[in-house]
Design a protein around this nucleic acid. Structure first.
Length: 363
DNA sequence: GTATGCTTTCGGC
DNA sequence: TTACGGCCGAAAGCATAC
């Protein structure tokens, strides 16, 4: 079962301030460049009715709502994390195995407790929906299926406040007419590539020769696409560990190719990241930089250290060198810059390394 | 050949 | 027609090690 909270950020705002419920609510990431620059994070369904969508420039969302009394609110991550924690605590109780995905979704393996019965699963889904509504005042959309892949697509089928059950013998028929981009891993680029191969629906994909898929998309993705198209998926519902990377990205006040301006911002991001790794008592092994040009094209560069570190000075130095090297080779105007730390591990360390070590001894 | 590590890009929310 | 965030993980593509 997949439980997906509806228009989560905007719904959290409605929960805090119920007077928002009868008007368009647009939760925005303001970049700080000008009064209105930035993008829409989430909008409630009233705003969506006016054509507002996630990722849309705020300017455009305002234009679509210019004649309406609408609320444009800045993201309040603390509020949403608090709401999310309560939701997850509630959901966890109903699962044999539980896996939170992002801030607003969770997979629940309920096979054992419903004894494999989809009728029992439907009843449980309805109980969960009522509990979320009555205890927390939130609506969600739920998908139930024989595996994670089908549950996910089922949950997307009816929103908001939906419930879609897909029993095993209905899986093929359910997926067949849907657009390929409903599959996880098929975004704009892959969908275009598939369209050029006359693959538009999941059914088209299911009928396509596996070997051709593999030669076009590679072994891993080709096989995945084929299995996904016929609803085959054996990914377990499994608790996630700590995040493997930590990043900060920010928009510059003006586009620039001036290294000094970039480094000033980069160092701010490093300080923020440093506070985070100190708080989490973690170290980093790689430092990456992310560069977004004025035309919104994205670049990244990274360097792996010889040993793990928790030093702010080293982080700033490596990021600085990467920016310097990039800009001297590509003197382009930048709009946004970011810094990412990966290869994260706890200080003292070694859980992963130790299991990896013993695991590799077997052959 | 297979496994592993690193860098870059893609895609989801 | 333009306009435009901030994260995260997965996978590709390449190099090197076994």
């Amino acid at each position: 079962m997949l439980v997906d909270l509806d228009y989560f950020y905007a719904q959290s705002e409605e929960l805090r301030n119920p007077s928002l419920k009868n008007k368009p609510v647009v939760v925005c990431v303001f970049s700080g460049r000008t009064e209105e620059s930035g993008a829409v994070s989430t909008a409630n369904y009233i705003a969506r009715g006016y054509g507002v969508r996630s990722g849309m420039p705020i300017y455009l969302a305002k234009k679509k709502l210019e004649s309406v009394d609408a609320a444009f609110l800045p993201v309040d991550e603390k509020l949403y994390t608090g709401t999310s924690d309560k939701v997850m605590q509630l959901l966890r109780v109903y699962a044999d195995e539980f896996e939170q995905v992002g801030i607003d979704e969770a997979y629940l393996d309920i096979t054992k407790r419903v004894q494999g019965s989809f009728q029992n699963a439907e009843n449980l889904a309805n109980i969960i929906k009522s509990e979320l509504r009555n205890q927390l005042g939130l609506t969600c959309s739920v998908g139930v299926g024989p595996n994670k892949l089908v549950a996910k697509i089922a949950a997307d089928e009816k929103k908001p406040d939906g419930l879609t059950i897909v029993e095993p013998d209905r899986v093929r028929g359910f997926l067949e007419p849907l657009a390929v981009d409903r599959l996880l891993g098929v975004g704009l680029k892959t969908a275009k590539k598939m369209a050029a191969m006359s693959i538009c629906t999941i059914g088209d994909l299911a009928r396509y020769d596996v070997q051709r898929l593999i030669s076009t998309f590679g072994r891993t993705r080709g096989t995945y696409f084929h299995n996904a198209s016929i609803g085959v998926d054996d990914e377990p519902v499994k608790e996630k560990g700590e995040a493997a990377s930590l990043s900060r990205i920010a928009t510059l006040v003006q586009n620039t190719s001036d290294l000094r301006v970039v480094l000033e911002k980069a160092n701010e991001l490093c300080v923020d990241l440093y506070a985070n790794i100190v708080e989490q008592k973690r170290t980093f092994k790689s430092v990456s930089i992310i560069l977004i040009a004025k035309d919104l094209s994205v670049y990244s560069r990274s360097r792996t250290l010889e040993s793990s570190s928790n030093s702010l000075e080293l982080m700033e130095r490596v990021a600085g060198e990467l920016f310097e090297a990039f800009l001297s080779e590509n003197p382009i105007e930048l709009r946004r810059v970011g810094v990412k730390l990966s290869g994260l591990s706890g200080i003292g360390m070694g859980q992963k390394q130790i299991t990896g070590f013993f695991g590799s001894r077997q052959d």
